[in-house]
Design a protein around this nucleic acid. Structure first.
Ligand SMILES: [Mn+2]
Ligand SMILES: [Mn+2]
Ligand SMILES: [Mn+2]
Ligand SMILES: [Mn+2]
Lengths: 222, 222
DNA sequence: AAATATTTTTAGTCTAATCTAAAAATTAGA
DNA sequence: TCTAATTTTTAGATTAGACTAAAAATATTT
C-alpha cells in the first residue's frame, strides 16, 4: 500500500513523464511537488525499493508497469470524484480540483467502482480528461492545442491542459467551455496571440498562454 | 487545523465522554484507539495546547466547547457519507463504516454542506444515529435499549449502539432492522436473554449482548 | 495507615517525511 | 578537453506520532 505522500509522488512522476520524453529528473519532481531535491532523492529510493519506479542514481526515473497502474488508479479516483461534484453536487468546474486532491487518496475499490456506476460510466472528467478504467487503462487523444491551428481552421474545445481556477475562470469569462466550436480568424506573429470567434457568440483575442492550454479537436463534426 | 490523528483522538474522547460521566481516562482512550497509554499522554498535551481539551496530569480529560464542535463536525461528515453510500451507491449498512472512517477526514465545508443538500437533509444515518448540523449541534434521544424493556412491552428499533459488521449482519439474519416493531415475550434471569417477537415475522431469543446494543423507542406509534 | 496494585507520566528510541549544508556526479562551454 | 555551472546525492537535524521501559502518582487492599 502506498502512503498519501507516495501516491502524490507517483502521480507527479506520471504527469511529468507524459510531457518529458526521457526519464523524469529529480529537480522537476521537486519543483512540481514544491519540495526540495534532497527530499525527492530520499523518496525515489523508497519508491524504487517498492518496485514502483526504475531508479539509477543521477539517471532520472521512469514508472514501472506497477507504478503506472498505481498512478492511473489514483487519477481514476480523482476524475470520478470531480464528475460527482460537478454533476451531482452542482460545483463549478473550477472548484473541484483541490477537493479531488483529497478524495483521490480514499482507499476503497468498491467505493470507486460503485461511484463510477452511479455516475453512469462517464468517459471524461469536467476538464475533458479521460477517466481510466478499473485496470488503469486510459486513452489520450488530446495532442492538438488551439495554438497549433492556423488562420481559417476550426475545431471544438475538448479539454484544458491547465486546470487551475484562474485559467478556468478566465475561460468562462469568454464563454470558452468544453464542446465550444471555435474558428481562428487571425494569428499575430508579434506575440503569438490569436483572434478567434466562438460560434454564435463573441470574438476574442487570446494570448499564447491561453491557446497553448486549450485542447482542440479539428474539423468540427457537427 | 486538526491532523488526521488529532481528529481521531477528538472523536474518541467525544464518544468516551458520552458513556463515562467523569473525565475520560488515558487508558480508555488508549484502549479505544488501539495504542499505548504513553502515546495518548503525548497527544493529550498537544490537544490541550490547541485548546481542544481540558487536561491536568492524572485527572482525565474533557473536551472544550471548541473541541466538542470539532469532533461533532467530523461525526457529521462520517454520517452524511454513510447515508450517501447506502442511499445512492447501494451499499449495505454493515459495509459503510470503515470507508466513512476515511471520508470523514476530507476537509471541505462546502463539500459536506452540498452533500447534505444532495441527500435532502437526512436526520439520521443508516444506523439510526443523528446527524449534527452545520454548527455541530445534535440531539440524542436514544437512551433506552431493548434490555431495558420488561415482558409485555413493545417498541420499535431506532438505532444500534454497536455498528460493527458482525453485529449488523447478525441483526439482519434475524430481520431486526431499523424501524422494526418488536415485543418482549419473556425475559430469562439466568443469562438475561430475551424472547422477542418481530411483528409479522419470526420470534427470536436474543442474548444480552444483542439487547443492550439495540436502541428502542417505546410505545409503538403506528 | 501501610503495603500493594494500577494508572499515568517521563525518558529515551524509532520511522516517515521533511529540511539545510556540503560533497559528488554530470553537463555545458570556453 | 578541461574548467565552471548545474544537478543530484549524502550527511546530519527536525517534527509528528508511535513504541518500550522505568519512574511517579493515584487507587485499592489488607
Ligand atoms: Mn483535477
Ligand atoms: Mn480534472
Ligand atoms: Mn460509522
Ligand atoms: Mn453510522
Amino acid at each position: 500500500m502506498a502512503s498519501f505522500t507516495e501516491e502524490n509522488y507517483l502521480k507527479a512522476i506520471y504527469f511529468l513523464s507524459r510531457t518529458q520524453s526521457a526519464g523524469v529528473s529529480t529537480n522537476s519532481i521537486a519543483h512540481r511537488l514544491d519540495t526540495k531535491a534532497s527530499s525527492v532523492t530520499d523518496m525515489l529510493k523508497k519508491l524504487s525499493a517498492k518496485k514502483w519506479i526504475n531508479y539509477q542514481k543521477y539517471q532520472g526515473v521512469t514508472l514501472t508497469t506497477s507504478g503506472q497502474r498505481t498512478a492511473l488508479l489514483i487519477i481514476r479516483k480523482h476524475r470520478l470524484w470531480e464528475v460527482f461534484m460537478v454533476e451531482k453536487l452542482n460545483f463549478k468546474w473550477d472548484e473541484v480540483h483541490e477537493i479531488a486532491e483529497q478524495l483521490e487518496h480514499v482507499d476503497s475499490t468498491e467505493l470507486v467502482d460503485r461511484l463510477e456506476e452511479f455516475l453512469e460510466y462517464p468517459k471524461f472528467d469536467p476538464h475533458g480528461d479521460p477517466i481510466p478504467d478499473r485496470e488503469g487503462n486510459v486513452f489520450h487523444h488530446k495532442d492538438l492545442s488551439l495554438a497549433d491551428l492556423t488562420t481559417g481552421e476550426s475545431g471544438v474545445v475538448v479539454g484544458v491542459k491547465d486546470s487551475s481556477s484562474a485559467f478556468l475562470q478566465h475561460l468562462e469569462s469568454m464563454g470558452l467551455v468544453l464542446g465550444c466550436p471555435v474558428t481562428v480568424k487571425a494569428t499575430y506573429a508579434y506575440d503569438k496571440s490569436m483572434l478567434i470567434s466562438i460560434k454564435h457568440k463573441k470574438t476574442h483575442t487570446v494570448s499564447v498562454q491561453v491557446s497553448r492550454n486549450l485542447y482542440i479537436k479539428k474539423h468540427l463534426d457537427q
